[in-house]
């Protein structure tokens, strides 16, 4: 009996990510959700710009590669063109919370029936380790070499907290992938975010607190610890909004 195998919705293409990068785990969780819901044939994914730009090579579903930050707008177009399709975006923190903030906020405000997987690792990976909108106060990056100074570089954007103020946002949860327990919770959240869409409920966004061993300058193991000790206190895990559950309870 097979206890664990690669999900069907992942292609055989070797992932280009750095050793220990948790993008691979998150890809797998998305693919598992697609498999479990049996929606592989009618799912369309939108890849971002950033490390996960080549996500289009890793999922067996039809994929569109969007301009930096515009994935929620492209997803809106795809979904409006054919509401029977299941449409998800996969975006990093620079893509979603910096250049694409406007598209993110308004897709949520419209209650667009799409699923957004938001990977927050507090740094720009693809371009080599610059400050992200989610970089922590004091965090050293290539463009905050003396540590992020909130007096001049401002505070991190807490996406789930921010979007939870919008009436259109349906389901917002922050999860992490730094240990087996958190990964199992992340899996549940991602599955639910897709299921919400299948059931026609509306906008779901899962923020996945993730690592970047290479640009954090840490080993993959140490990066998991850094996530736990530094990211999670600033970005507490949990459900920030579940309008659908609230509506069901009424």
């Amino acid at each position: 009996m097979t206890v664990f195998d690669k999900p069907k919705s992942l292609t055989d293409a070797p992932l280009h990510y750095c050793p220990g990068c948790t993008h691979g785990i998150i890809h797998r969780l998305v693919a598992e959700a697609i498999d479990e819901l049996g929606i592989e044939g009618r799912t369309i994914g939108i890849a971002p710009v950033g490390c996960s730009v080549m996500a289009y090579n890793y999922f067996t579903v039809d994929m569109v590669q969007a301009a930096h930050g515009r994935a929620p707008a492209v997803a809106t177009g795809v979904k409006r063109a054919d509401p029977s399709k299941i449409v998800f975006t996969y975006q990093g923190d620079g893509d979603l919370a910096s250049i694409g903030t406007c598209e993110t906020v308004h897709a949520a405000a419209r209650g667009e029936n799409i699923t957004i997987i938001f990977v927050n690792n507090a740094i720009y990976g693809m371009t080599g380790g610059q400050m992200a909108p989610t970089s922590l106060p004091g965090q050293i990056t290539q463009t905050s070499p003396y540590g992020r100074d909130v007096a001049t570089q401002g505070y991190p954007v807490k996406v789930c907290e921010m979007l939870s103020q919008l009436d259109g946002a349906g389901y917002l949860e922050r999860v992490a992938v730094n240990n087996v327990k958190n990964i199992k919770n992340a899996k549940k959240a991602i599955l639910k975010a897709f299921k919400n869409q299948v059931e026609g409920k509306g906008f779901s966004l899962i923020e996945v607190v993730s690592t970047c061993p290479t640009n954090w300058g840490l080993t993959p193991e140490k990066a998991l610890e850094w996530l736990n000790d530094n990211m999670l206190p600033y970005y507490p895990l949990g459900v920030y909004k579940d309008k659908f559950a609230e509506e069901a309870a009424k």
């Binding site: 301009a67 492209v74 809106t76 177009g77 795809v78 409006r80 063109a81 406007c102 598209e103």
Partner: peptide, 13 residues
């Protein structure tokens, strides 16, 4: 910007 990207989404289909 969003409008043209929504166009891109529909055009992709």
């Amino acid at each position: 910007i969003a409008a043209i990207n929504m166009v891109m989404g529909v055009a992709s289909t």
